[in-house]
Structure formats: structure tokens, C-alpha cells
């Protein structure tokens, strides 16, 4: 595990995720080279407000992903409510309103699988708190491509189902408390 091997980070959170993401994003360094792509399941239609909430906790900018937008390092992109976020070669962002996956849209599986196709072994996947199993298949796609898997310690998660589902299906390279995730990402992508 040497620094600089990883080019991008994808993160998934559901129930309890807003607080969890604020902690992880809040620990990220302004010198982070990698982009961060995020799926947070939410009932709200206001992705902009969610971005503001995350941006207030973080030194890196957090914006809603737009179709065709070039994805650049040191910036966090949030999947807009109601849309799947995918990664195309470039790398650039793409959106879709295709069927829900794991009963949700945006789905972390959709993001993780498309990101794994683009970044392959240079991708880090992070699965945080949540009450469903979205992100598990995506984590498997990342780890089967020799990318790195980080899962929140289920005992610490507000909802343990999502981290547990990821661990059950895909396993992980690191099972960590929230406070340790940001510093590790800084180290791997600094």
C-alpha cells in the first residue's frame, strides 16, 4: 500500500449518512489529489442544500454532479437526488433516470460499478452507514478489479446493514471507525 496508487474515491451512505459523511469529508485534506464521488440516499429533492451541508464541513468543494462535467481531483461530486451517477471515460460524470437499483436512485452500485470500469485498480470504495444493501455489489466490482475497499465498522455505524452487506458480499481491505477513514484517504491520495 503506497501513496499515490489511487486516482479516485467513491463513497456510499444511506440512513445516518449525512453525519457520517460530514465527519469523513471534514477530515479530507485540501491537497487531496483524487476526486470524491458520493451517493447519499435521501428523501429530499434538494441536492443543493445537501451539498452546502457537506461543503460547510469540508475544505474541499462539494458540488452536485452535472452530466458531461469533467471530474477533477480535489473536488467532491454528489449524485443529484433521483438520478444515478455514473462515470464515463475522461473521466466525466453522466446521469441516468433508469430503473432504481436496490430500490434506490441514486444507487451506489451503479456509481461504484461504472467507476470501477474507468479507474480499475486505482479506485477506492467506501461504504458507510445505511439500512439496505446498496453498495455491496459495487464494492465487489471494485475489489475484483484490485481496487481498495474501506467499510465503516458496523458496530459504530448508525445503521449497520449496509456496511455488513458490503463485508458479507465483498469483504474489505480496511474496516474502520469514521474518524480513521478521512486520514487514511489523505494518506493514500495525497
Amino acid at each position: 500500500m503506497r501513496a499515490g496508487r489511487y486516482d479516485a474515491i467513491v463513497m456510499a451512505a444511506s440512513s445516518g449518512g449525512i453525519d457520517a459523511l460530514r465527519i469523513v469529508l471534514g477530515a479530507l485534506d485540501a491537497r487531496l489529489r483524487a476526486p470524491v464521488l458520493i451517493v447519499q440516499h435521501t428523501a429530499s429533492e434538494n441536492g443543493h442544500a445537501l451539498c452546502e451541508l457537506f461543503a460547510a464541513a469540508s475544505v474541499i468543494p462539494v458540488i452536485e454532479a452535472e452530466p458531461r462535467q469533467p471530474i477533477v481531483g480535489g473536488c467532491a461530486y454528489l449524485a443529484p437526488p433521483g438520478y444515478h451517477l455514473l462515470v464515463e471515460a475522461g473521466p466525466r460524470a453522466a446521469l441516468s433516470v433508469d430503473d432504481k437499483v436496490c430500490h434506490v436512485r441514486p444507487s451506489a452500485d451503479v456509481l461504484f460499478e461504472s467507476a470501477a470500469d474507468v479507474w480499475r485498480s486505482a479506485l477506492i470504495g467506501v461504504v458507510l452507514t445505511g439500512a439496505n444493501d446498496d453498495g455491496a455489489a459495487g464494492m465487489l466490482a471494485i475489489r475484483s478489479r484490485k481496487g481498495l475497499g474501506i467499510v465503516q465498522l458496523p458496530d459504530e455505524a448508525e445503521m449497520r446493514e449496509m456496511p455488513e452487506a458490503a463485508l458479507r458480499l465483498a469483504g474489505a481491505d480496511h474496516v474502520l471507525r469514521l474518524a480513521a477513514i478521512g486520514p487514511l484517504l489523505n494518506q493514500l491520495c495525497g
Binding site: H84, L86, S96, D98, D99, S114, D117
Partner: peptide, 12 residues
């Protein structure tokens, strides 16, 4: 077509 979403549709 954009490849990533097209791929998902074919697999679906």
C-alpha cells in the same frame, strides 16, 4: 450513446 449507461441497459 454514452457507454456506461448503455452497458447497464444491455445487462438489464
Amino acid at each position: 450513446y454514452a457507454p456506461a449507461s448503455f452497458k447497464r441497459r444491455v445487462l438489464a
